[in-house]
Design a protein around this nucleic acid. Structure first.
Lengths: 177, 177
DNA sequence: AGCCATTATGCAACTAGTTGCACATGGCTC
DNA sequence: GAGCCATGTGCAACTAGTTGCATAATGGCT
């Protein structure tokens, strides 16, 4: 149950409407917890119903009208509770690795094109992250909030770096058939 | 839709019953596509109904009796088709990163204990993988099938290595509050 | 005024994965 | 032979995530 907490975090950073949240998810929080706009609207409805957030009064309640939300005290408390909670690391679920394994049994025709495609995607994502790092964390000042956000970004950089290296090695070692 | 293909791959490697598959998933394929025994039985039922696999005739059909499955030609064809298919890399979904991000907003009490716990888990998993590598790939002989399976294992090793390094760095940089 | 693209909100149906439990057989022990 | 445990199969209900589509307001263009 992470999506509501991702939304609470985003709303605490800045009150937003559903569409704004969707866009912010596409370029920061969504890097490690993605969500579609449909999921976000549904969850906003639930969070409002449960008293964790509320719509800012200014906005008209009509459809097609922007509706901004802010976090209430109960929502902040819930996020604090959840932050202190533990959860085991997620198991890896990556179809590409499954395909390699299957290819070992039924043959690996066309596999190297797919590996090359993934390599290009991971390189692009890595470049994005590095650009964000240059922009948002230019100096190594170490104030608390900043440091945690930088650590999260470095996780993204490290993961993409791993994939780029692994794909490069694996392409080199691939049997040419 | 990866689970049926994971099962087909496993059954091609060796015909098995549901419980045997469950155990094999716990220590090889499941490292990058985990599944519970309930999921596996349900999927075996579907694969049998669609004519991709069949139960070996020897086994009695009764409940509580072992029932072994083997892959039919249609199943093998389906796996070949799927292997050649493409799929974009899975987005990362890791609650721990979300918690760091939330901690940047509501405070990071107790977070370092959780990071230490994850570090221990990832170290243990990495050791497991390294032990498997020593056992299954002692020399660097490069025959085709073997090479792909080794590449998959090295992905696991690389990912766990990344987490161990990232967690170590992040713990060092954590504000002590 | 009519048309269209953009911004914005949202429902409904479906698919996949998780959790909790039930049931069957056979061997071992008391 | 009664009770218990390990092995083995399986259903049902629930939760989370995805996909497809519907609807409303607004502003610019012709």
């Amino acid at each position: 149950m992470s999506l509501p907490h991702a939304i609470l975090t985003a709303l605490l950073e800045r009150p937003s409407s559903g569409l704004e949240l969707t866009r912010r998810f596409d370029k920061s929080i969504g890097f490690f917890w993605s969500a579609t706009h449909q999921q976000i609207y549904r969850e906003l409805g639930r969070l409002e119903a449960s008293g964790h957030i509320r719509a800012l009064p200014q906005a008209g309640p009509a459809r097609g009208q922007k509706k901004e939300y802010e976090v209430l005290a109960a929502g902040r408390a819930e996020l604090e509770r959840w932050t202190a909670e533990g959860s085991d690391p997620r198991a890896v679920r990556e179809p590409l690795l499954l395909r390699l394994r299957a290819a070992a049994v039924v043959g690996s025709a066309g596999l190297d094109a797919e590996l090359r495609r993934h390599l290009a995607l991971h390189r692009a994502q890595l470049d994005d992250y590095l650009a964000i790092e240059r922009h948002d964390f230019p100096s190594e000042r170490a104030d608390g909030e900043n440091r945690l956000q930088h650590a999260v970004l470095r996780a993204g950089i490290g993961l993409e770096t791993f994939w780029v290296e692994w794909l490069t090695e694996t392409l080199d070692a691939l049997p040419t058939d």
